[in-house]
Structure formats: structure tokens, C-alpha cells
């Protein structure tokens, strides 16, 4: 039997909202340590990796590892029947479940839904736990804003790191521009900008994906950008007390 109860069901809804335009059908994996998900977008340029630790749930039980194939679109239809303040419980009964049960609980209502599961043949990738040569932490809303602004000018965005900070730049048909974000150690943690640069990087990415990734900014006030030259960048949103959502994006490279 598998059971996982979110004290804050709104959080689960935010996670689904954050990934729904990136991935369509996903395998949700549950085991004794928690729930995880890994899926690529249809063009295989981006990878979504979610980890929710067992300790972050109000209640968690998983006796045997299981894989639940879900349509994100259908999952969202069911989640629309819950309130943002509901507690949400996910549950399966059988060893090889064909449905995933949802209980939505508020002060004055309990709802039950069953979502049909699918058998998905999905590629599972081994993502190495590497050290990145540049790691930048910055406010997630600021990153969202920069991507939106520069995305107007060109479809590719450049990211350059140095000891001084991080620079975003674009070159398009209409002209070019750059935005430098300064390091600061303000007392408000959500406004802090930190750069750990062992080696500077200069990378280019399709801004369209960043704009999709930025839907996850509702999960955390800070975003962590980890980069190495000519490697996929990782954008990480820490989900407080529960785990993290990591979004990988393959770079554009000179041929």
C-alpha cells in the first residue's frame, strides 16, 4: 500500500502547474524514501526532475516501490476539484495499481477521486551528481522578469558568469542588450544574489524553455542556476522541507 498526505495540497497543485507545459505523460515513482519523477519534454531539450522526501509529508507510507504512469492533463482535471487550502492524500491499494486515489480534505468537505493510471514506456536517464563550475542564487521573480524582457529581443539568451556576478545578454535582428545582476547579501534571504564561480561560463539557451521553467517560481522565492561550460544548465527550486524541482536545459553549442 502507498499513501502520501500533503499537509499543504496547494503545494502539489503548484508543482503540477509548474511542469504541465513541459511534460505530458510521466511516471511517478514512489518508494520508501519518497516520491520522484523524471521526464523529458517532447523535443528532448529539457528534463524535469522532481524529488519529494518522505519526511516532508504529513503522512507517508510505501511498502513496495511502485511506478504510476499519469497524464498530467488528466491529473490537473482532478486537482481542479480541490481547494488551494485542502490537504491532499494520494493512495493506491493494490501491488500493481490501475488507479491512483485522491482525497481532498478541507474543514467542511471531503472529496474522493480515482485517476486511471497508464503504462508508460519511458526512458530513464542517469543524471550524474556533478560539481558545477558556476552556481548562482537569485530571486526567482527577477530571473522570470529578465527572461521575459530579453525573450522579446531574441529567441536565444546568453548567460555569462564571473566573480562579479551574472550577466544575461541577447543579440537579435533589432539590436542587442545585456542585464547584469549584482551580488548582494541583503538581510532579506529572498532578495539575495550569490555567485560561486570556480570557473566562468558563457552559455547560450533557448529562452522559450526558461519562460516555461519560470512557472515554477511559485514554489520558491529563490532560484539556483548551476552551470558548467557546454553542459546542460540546472535550474533548481527548493521546495521547503520537502525536496526540490530541478529543470535541466541543454545548451546551444557552436558546431
Amino acid at each position: 500500500m502507498f499513501e502520501a498526505k500533503f499537509e499543504d495540497g496547494g503545494l502539489f497543485k503548484k508543482i503540477v502547474e509548474a511542469i504541465k507545459e513541459l511534460v505530458k505523460n510521466v511516471n511517478l515513482e514512489a518508494n520508501g524514501t519518497g516520491i520522484s519523477l523524471q521526464a523529458m519534454d517532447t523535443s528532448h531539450v529539457a528534463l524535469v526532475a522532481l524529488q519529494l522526501n518522505e519526511k516532508g509529508f504529513k503522512k507517508y507510507r510505501c511498502e513496495k516501490s511502485l511506478t504510476m504512469g499519469l497524464s498530467i492533463e488528466n491529473l490537473q482535471k482532478i486537482l481542479k476539484c480541490s481547494g488551494n487550502d485542502d490537504q491532499i492524500t494520494l493512495r493506491t491499494q493494490d501491488e500493481e495499481p490501475t488507479t491512483l486515489s485522491f482525497t481532498f480534505e478541507s474543514k467542511n468537505r471531503i472529496s474522493e477521486f480515482q485517476l486511471n493510471l497508464m503504462s508508460l514506456d519511458q526512458e530513464q536517464l542517469g543524471v550524474p551528481d556533478t560539481e558545477y563550475s558556476s552556481v548562482v542564487r537569485m530571486p526567482s521573480n527577477e530571473f522570470t522578469k529578465i527572461c521575459r524582457e530579453l525573450g522579446n529581443i531574441n529567441e536565444a539568451i546568453g548567460i555569462e558568469t564571473s566573480k562579479e556576478g551574472i550577466k544575461f545578454y541577447v543579440k537579435g535582428d533589432i539590436g542587442e542588450g545585456q542585464v547584469s545582476v549584482k551580488i548582494n547579501d541583503t538581510e532579506k534571504p529572498e532578495e539575495r544574489v550569490e555567485c560561486e564561480v570556480d570557473e566562468p561560463v558563457n552559455l547560450s539557451f533557448a529562452v522559450r524553455y526558461f519562460n516555461l521553467f519560470n512557472k515554477a517560481s511559485a514554489l520558491s522565492s529563490q532560484v539556483i542556476l548551476s552551470m558548467s561550460q557546454d553542459q546542460p544548465l540546472v535550474i533548481e527550486y527548493i521546495i521547503e522541507e520537502m525536496g526540490s524541482l530541478k529543470l535541466y536545459l541543454a545548451p546551444k553549442i557552436n558546431d
Binding site: L47, L125, V127, I253
Partner: peptide
């Protein structure tokens, strides 16, 4: 000219 890479070029199949 820069070419868009894909994720499986970097991460291996498990």
C-alpha cells in the same frame, strides 16, 4: 551558428 543540443547527448540511459 549555434546548434541546440539534446539532453540524451549528455546523460546516459539507465
Amino acid at each position: 551558428l549555434k546548434t541546440q543540443q539534446s539532453i540524451p547527448n549528455f546523460f546516459t540511459d539507465m
